[in-house]
């Protein structure tokens, strides 16, 4: 059952945090808002020896939009869901991002859960990663020695698994400005505060359709070749096209079964919800 209470490390600067990360690597579990790690520890699925808390690293809590560099939204990893949801800047310029974060769990959770946390825990049943991937967002990953920027789809590689190295921290999310159409649909099979059973994000990015389906497999599912069917369709999609894209997504995904729905059920809902997302995109 429970072991010794884990050591609590609470650096106050990113430099300090990176130094601890370099020193301890996987011996210390990184904790941001704690809403994910907390559940795992309560259920005794995870029993870390040490916790590296980023809570006091205030330089990682920010929301900025640079007007230059192609007009990029930069969100610090320690920004809470609630802060994203309520940010006037994000509500104005990236409204679907704000509304998607507002769909996560309850206000109590959103006041704790962070943008960096929800990406780095790579929980398949989350809302934000699906939308961020559709928006072609990238994350900035730092170690003491290096900094790299990778797309969200290369960050999350499996169930609770990321491509982060033991000495790295996810420090920032960068979302390109998107003046084109974006839709996020959260299908809940149970409570309004539940995680998604099927999550669908659809966005036009640089004139190309990106449909990402989340919460149905080990990581968000994106099929560029199916999205390519929509190429050249600028004035809205036909009923036949959106139905076909929905069906092809449903056929291409191997859905999981869990308490929110069986694989067979999810497959049916994927076809419906992808189609509906594309219908909503029609101007």
């Amino acid at each position: 059952m429970s072991r010794n209470i884990p050591q609590w490390l609470a650096p106050t600067s990113l430099q300090e945090a990176l130094a601890l990360r370099a020193q301890l690597g996987d011996e210390a579990t990184v904790v941001a808002g704690g809403t994910f790690i907390g559940i795992l520890m309560n259920q005794k699925i995870m029993q870390p020896q040490a916790l590296l808390s980023l809570r006091n690293v205030s330089e990682l809590a920010f929301i900025e939009a640079s007007q230059d560099e192609g007009s990029l939204l930069r969100i610090g990893a320690m920004t809470t869901h609630r802060a994203v949801e309520r940010s006037p800047l994000i509500r104005q310029e990236w409204p679907v991002l704000a509304s998607t974060f507002s769909l996560v769990a309850s206000p109590r959770v959103r006041n704790q859960a962070t943008v960096g946390g929800v990406l780095a825990d790579a929980d398949y049943a989350s809302d934000p990663p699906t939308l961020l991937q559709a928006l072609n967002a990238r994350v900035v990953v730092r170690s003491q020695k290096s900094e790299r920027e990778i797309p969200v789809e290369e960050l999350i590689i499996g169930y609770y698994e990321t491509s982060l190295r033991p000495d790295e921290l996810l420090v920032e999310v960068r979302v390109p400005r998107n003046r084109e159409r974006v839709v996020y649909r959260k299908f809940r099979s149970r409570s309004s505060e539940d995680r998604p059973c099927v999550a669908v994000a659809a966005a036009q990015v640089d004139g190309k359709l990106r449909v990402v389906v989340g919460a149905v497999a080990e990581k968000p599912q994106y099929f560029p070749e199916i999205c390519a069917l929509a190429e050249g369709e600028t004035g809205g999609y036909t009923r036949e096209l959106v139905t076909e894209i929905g069906q092809r997504y449903a056929e291409s995904i191997e859905p999981i079964s869990d308490s929110r729905g069986s694989a067979a059920y999810r497959r049916r809902v994927i076809a419906v919800e992808v189609r509906r997302a594309l219908e909503e995109m029609v101007p």
Binding site: N42, Q43, S106, S191, S192, E193, S259
Partner: peptide, 14 residues
Amino acid sequence: NANLSDYNLPAAGD
């Protein structure tokens, strides 16, 4: 599902 994450209770939104 013996926890309040996997076991859903009704929320105000329900």
